[in-house]
């Protein structure tokens, strides 16, 4: 009886999430600094020609790719965060816990700041080429850290040690970044800081040809990890006794989360908070520890929340777009605190 009730509850939560996701996606496309009538947007979405070429350009080349970016980035970071929280059995873990975002930051810092210092070129002034270089650097930095973590994961038996190593990599990267900043020009530091604030509006369709497949691979891969993640809830010893190959599972989880984090951080900058918070919010709503529910749930929730944050960042009235990091943290932190307080009062 009660089981039927919870099943019903989960189903309605999924439906609600799906609807919110859709509505937020449509809102992201409809709203912006240029006013486009809703009718025209709907017409365009159903594939009809609309008379205004400027509108069509804005929808196709700006709003749609941005909405897709937000959706995928949110889903990917949330899925990565959930996996890290389960793997490390630590509620404070997020996709950046492995030091991958720091690695990306280091990559960007080296390219942006070092180039500036040695060659005297400011990448910020190089436009399109400059920003692609930044993406590449971020990706290389992230992948480098990921490989290091994977290498260590094979050597270290203990997950807690891996966690500490990840955090240390983060500190070391920040230190090098700090050093580079100290040696750099104002303009270069500015462009590094801007990258660090995160943004969903840097992706053209060209870049989406890389971004979409990579993130989709990561998301689909996450679905394949449902069983090992569920077993890992009990801890590594129990998981091993239940027939799980711990090393292989851990490696798969790290590779998938690493791929998601590296890709998203490279293209959008280090987006804070989503990966840590969405799993908690989803667990609060769905009241389950079962990953066959949680993995799809965090993807939907992450996508929806990222779209909401992006919408707020581009609210009419702001000059341009607010840094996405500021929005995610400002919106999200109070939500998480309230969820935790509510849960506490329920259990006590």
């Amino acid at each position: 009886m009660q089981k039927g009730e919870t099943k019903q509850r989960k189903r309605s939560a999924f439906i609600l999430l799906g609807i919110s996701l859709f509505v937020l996606f449509v809102l992201n496309i409809s709203l912006g600094s240029v006013y486009i009538p809703f009718q025209a947007v709907v017409k365009w979405m159903f594939g009809f020609q609309i008379s205004n070429e400027i509108w069509e350009n804005i929808l196709m080349k700006s709003r749609l790719p941005q909405a897709v970016t937000a959706l995928l980035a949110g889903a990917g970071l949330a899925a990565g965060g959930l996996q890290m929280q389960t793997l490390f059995r630590n509620p404070l873990a997020g996709p950046s816990i492995l030091g991958i975002s720091s690695g990306a930051g280091l990559g960007v810092a080296i390219v942006v700041l070092l180039f500036g210092a040695i060659q005297g070129i400011s990448l910020a002034g190089l436009g399109w080429f400059g920003s692609l270089t930044i993406t590449a650097a971020a990706f290389l930095g992230a992948i480098w850290v990921l490989f290091m973590v994977l290498f260590l994961a094979r050597k270290l038996k203990n997950n807690a040690m891996l966690l500490i190593v990840g955090i240390m990599v983060g500190y070391a990267s920040s230190a090098i970044v700090g050093l580079l900043q100290f040696l750099s020009t104002k303009e270069d530091i500015q462009s590094f800081v801007v990258w660090g604030l995160g943004s969903f509006n840097n992706l053209t369709w060209d870049r989406h040809t890389i971004f979409i497949p990579m993130v989709v691979i990561g998301l689909v891969g996450s679905l394949f990890l449902i069983k090992p993640l569920n077993v890992l809830l009990l801890g590594e010893n129990y998981a091993a006794n239940l027939g799980l190959n711990i090393k292989r599972s851990r490696l798969s989880i790290l590779v998938i989360t690493g791929l998601l984090t590296a890709t998203i951080t490279a293209f959008c900058g280090p987006v804070a908070f989503l990966g840590l918070a969405v799993p908690h919010l989803s667990k609060g709503i769905f009241k389950t520890a079962d990953h066959s529910v949680l993995i799809p749930a965090v993807m939907l929730f992450g996508g929806a929340l990222a779209l909401l944050c992006h919408l707020i960042a581009r609210m009419p009235g702001f000059d341009g777009t607010l840094p996405i990091n500021a929005v995610t943290s400002l919106i999200g932190a109070p939500i998480v605190v309230s969820v935790i307080l509510k849960r506490r009062s329920l259990t006590q």
């Binding site: 069983k227 569920n230 077993v231 239940l242 066959s292």
Partner: peptide, 12 residues
């Protein structure tokens, strides 16, 4: 979870 050794790929 004790059924893990007997369930399929998704643990259903």
């Amino acid at each position: 979870l004790g059924r893990t050794p007997y369930t399929g790929f998704f643990g259903k």
